[in-house]
Computed example of a mutant assay.
Amino acid sequence: MKLYTSLATVYNWFNEFKRGRTNLTDDLRQGRPFMATIEDNISAVRLMIKTDKRVTYQQIRTSLSIGMSQVYKILHEQLAASKLSTLWIAYNLTEAQKLRLVIWCRKMMQRFASLYRI
């Protein structure tokens, strides 16, 4: 299998070596911080979700000045949240929240037991 380089890339390399470059490694570059999923950003996203359950990826991204992939990682990997009918639902519930949900489900089953065979 042969790999071909574009003519533009060859010209760029030629010009770099013509200007005196002698190594083939990449230079350090300025850019975004390496880790945008720092605890401050995670806490900020957690607060945004608590405050407004209809907050969007775009609103989080512009508010924190981080990339969409980092927003996704914070929401889904760090906070274990997912979108349910335009609301963010956190799935790491406390024991009290789990118990309240079980009690509610039992009440609903009792209420509808007369209508349906459960």
Rank of each mutant, 00 (worst) to 15 (best):
M1R: 02
L3F: 10
Y4S: 11
Y4R: 09
T5E: 13
T5N: 09
S6L: 11
A8D: 13
A8F: 04
A8Q: 10
T9D: 13
N12I: 02
N12T: 06
N12D: 09
W13G: 07
W13D: 09
N15M: 15
N15L: 15
F17S: 05
K18A: 10
K18T: 08
G20R: 02
R21G: 04
T22Y: 08
T25G: 07
L28T: 08
L28M: 10
Q30D: 10
G31A: 09
G31T: 12
A36M: 15
T37R: 15
I38W: 04
I38M: 06
E39C: 02
E39Q: 15
E39Y: 02
N41M: 10
I42A: 03
A44G: 03
V45K: 01
V45H: 00
V45F: 01
M48F: 07
I49N: 12
T51H: 08
T51Q: 12
D52H: 06
R54G: 11
Y57C: 03
Q58G: 01
I60C: 05
R61N: 06
R61K: 15
T62A: 11
T62D: 15
L64S: 06
L64V: 07
S65W: 00
S65Y: 01
M68H: 12
S69A: 09
S69L: 07
Q70L: 00
Q70E: 12
V71I: 06
Y72G: 11
H76C: 02
Q78I: 00
S82V: 08
K83Q: 15
L84Y: 01
S85F: 03
T86D: 14
L87C: 15
I89Y: 02
I89W: 01
A90V: 11
A90M: 15
T94C: 05
T94N: 06
E95H: 07
A96D: 13
A96Q: 13
A96F: 01
A96T: 11
A96H: 05
K98S: 09
L99Q: 14
L99K: 14
R100I: 01
L101D: 09
V102L: 14
V102G: 04
I103S: 11
W104H: 13
W104K: 15
C105P: 00
K107F: 06
K107P: 01
K107V: 04
Q110K: 07
R111F: 14
F112E: 13
F112L: 13
S114I: 05
L115H: 13
L115F: 13
Y116T: 03
